[in-house]
Nucleic acid binder design. Structure first.
Lengths: 243, 243
DNA sequence: ATCGCGCAAAGTGTCGACACATTGGAGTGG
DNA sequence: CCACTCCAATGTGTCGACACTTTGCGCGAT
C-alpha cells in the first residue's frame, strides 16, 4: 500500500471529526449561527474533556470571551442542555453535566437496538452501489488498523456507522443516532487502545459488510449489535468512574 | 362493573393527558419556567391541531399574548424546534412544521424497535409486583373497551406504554420514547375509531402482560412491536396526507 | 397584462440594563 | 471553636430598544 494513501487517510481527519460530531444537528441550527458557533465550541470542549464534568459555565464570561452579549450564549447553553452536555438549573449556575456508568450503559442499550434497526433497514433498502460505499469505509479502517492508527480508526469507524445510518433511509433514525453519538464521544477516550480490539473490530466490520452484500438480515443485525456491545465492554473495563 | 369505576376512569383523564404529554421533559425545564409554560401552551395547540402545519408563529404577537417580552417566547420556540414541532429558519419567520407520511413511518420504525427493547429489558429486570402495575393499566383498558370509550382507551394506552418504558429501568430510553410520543400525538386523531381496532388491541395487551408474567422474552418483544405497527397501519389507512 | 424594481411594513437577532435570586464570607453570639 | 445571621458580590431571567433582513405591495416599464 502506497504511503500517501495512509497520509490521505489522516489528512482530512480533523474535518471529518467536526463534520461527524455535528451531523446530528443539520437543520437544528435554525437558531442564530452565532449561538450555534458558541454551541459548537463548547460542545467540542466538553466531549474532549477540556471542560470537565461539574465545571461551571458563566454566561457573562463566555459573552466576553466570544465578544457578544449574553443572549446568544444563553441560547447555546440551552442547546447544550438539550444534548445533555450541560445542566441548567433554574436561577442557578449552569455546569457541565457528569456522566455515570449506568447512563453510559443506558445509551449503549439504545444504540445497540437502533443499530440493529439500521442494519435491518439497510439490507432491505440499500442498493448494491450504496453497499459498496461501506466497502470503501471498511478499506480505510483496514488501512488504519494496519498502520496501528487508533485515532484514525475511531473516526473512520464513526464515519462507517454514520454512513450505515444514512443508508437506512430513515432520516429520523440517523438524527437520533447522531444525538446519541454526541454523548458517547465524551467517554470515548476511555475505550482507547485496548490490545486486540482493533483486529477483532476490523474482522467484524468485514463480516458485516459481507452480510449486507449477501442480504443476510439476521447475520447483519447480530453483528451490528455485537459491535456496539464490544464498544461498551471496552469502556466498562477501562476504568475509573465519576459518580 | 359499577358505573362509578367508569366515571373514575374518565375523571382524571385531562390530568393524565397533560402529564403524559410532557413526561418527556422532566428535567428539561431547566430553562425558565416562563418559557416552559409558553412551550407547553404552544405544544398542546400544535399536537391538537389548533395550530395547523405551516401556521406562522410571531414572536412579538406571542409576547403580547403571554404578557412577557420576546426573550422567553424565543426560548419556547427553540424548545419547540427541538421537538420538531416548529421550524425556525434563520432570519425567517418560524412556522409550525408539517408532517409527511414518510416521516410518520420513520418515527414508527424507531418506536417499534425501541419498544422491542423496552419489552426485552422489562422481562429481565421488572419484579412481579411491577408487572402487576401493568395489569392494573390493562384493567383500565378493558373497562374503556367495554364502554366503547375510544378517547379513554387511547390515553390509558399511552399510560400503559409509558409505564412499560419506566419499568425497563432505562431512563434515557424512557425519555427518548416520550419525545417520540410528543410527535406522534399530532396525527393521533387520524387513527381514531377504526372498527375492531379496540378489541384486537385489547387482546394483544392481554397477551403482552401474560408474556411478561411468564418471562417470555421472544413473545413479549414480538407482541410489543406488532402493537406499534398496528397503530401505524391504522394511520396509514385512515387517510388524507399533507405533503 | 406581465415582469422587475424599489420602498415601506413587519419581524428577527442582538444588545445593554435592571431586578431579583443565589452564594460565600465576614461578623456576631453561644 | 462552631453555628447562625446578614450583607455584598456574583450571576441569572427578563425587558425594551435598535439595526439589519425579509416580505409583500405598488408603480412604472416593456
Amino acid at each position: 500500500m502506497p504511503p500517501d494513501t495512509i497520509a490521505d487517510n489522516r489528512a482530512d481527519l480533523g474535518q471529518l471529526r467536526q463534520e461527524l460530531l455535528f451531523s446530528a444537528l443539520r437543520g437544528v441550527e435554525g437558531s442564530s449561527s452565532l449561538a450555534f458557533a458558541i454551541f459548537r465550541e463548547l460542545a467540542i470542549g466538553i466531549v474532549e474533556g477540556r471542560l470537565p464534568p461539574g465545571h461551571e459555565v458563566n454566561s457573562a464570561e463566555l459573552a466576553r470571551q466570544f465578544d457578544t452579549s449574553r443572549t446568544p450564549v444563553r441560547e447555546a447553553l440551552l442547546m447544550l442542555e438539550r444534548e445533555d452536555l450541560v445542566v441548567v438549573p433554574p436561577r442557578r449556575r449552569p455546569h457541565v453535566s457528569d456522566v455515570a456508568l449506568t447512563q453510559v450503559r443506558e445509551i449503549y442499550e439504545i444504540r445497540a437496538s437502533l443499530y440493529g434497526l439500521v442494519s435491518e433497514l439497510l439490507v432491505a433498502r440499500a442498493t448494491d452501489e450504496e453497499i459498496d460505499r461501506l466497502h470503501e469505509w471498511q478499506g480505510k479502517l483496514a488501512a488504519d488498523a494496519a498502520a496501528g492508527d487508533v485515532d484514525g480508526y475511531f473516526w473512520h469507524n464513526v464515519g462507517f456507522r454514520n454512513t450505515e445510518a444514512s443508508l437506512s433511509g430513515n432520516r429520523e433514525l440517523q438524527r437520533r443516532l447522531s444525538s446519541l453519538g454526541l454523548q458517547m464521544h465524551r467517554f470515548r477516550h476511555l475505550s482507547l487502545s485496548l490490545p486486540g480490539r482493533l483486529v477483532n473490530s476490523l474482522a467484524d466490520h468485514e463480516r458485516l459488510v459481507r452480510a449486507y452484500s449477501e442480504r443476510d438480515v439476521a447475520m447483519a443485525v447480530a453483528i451490528s449489535r455485537s459491535l456496539v456491545w464490544r464498544g461498551y465492554r471496552a469502556i466498562e473495563r477501562s476504568g475509573r468512574w465519576l459518580a
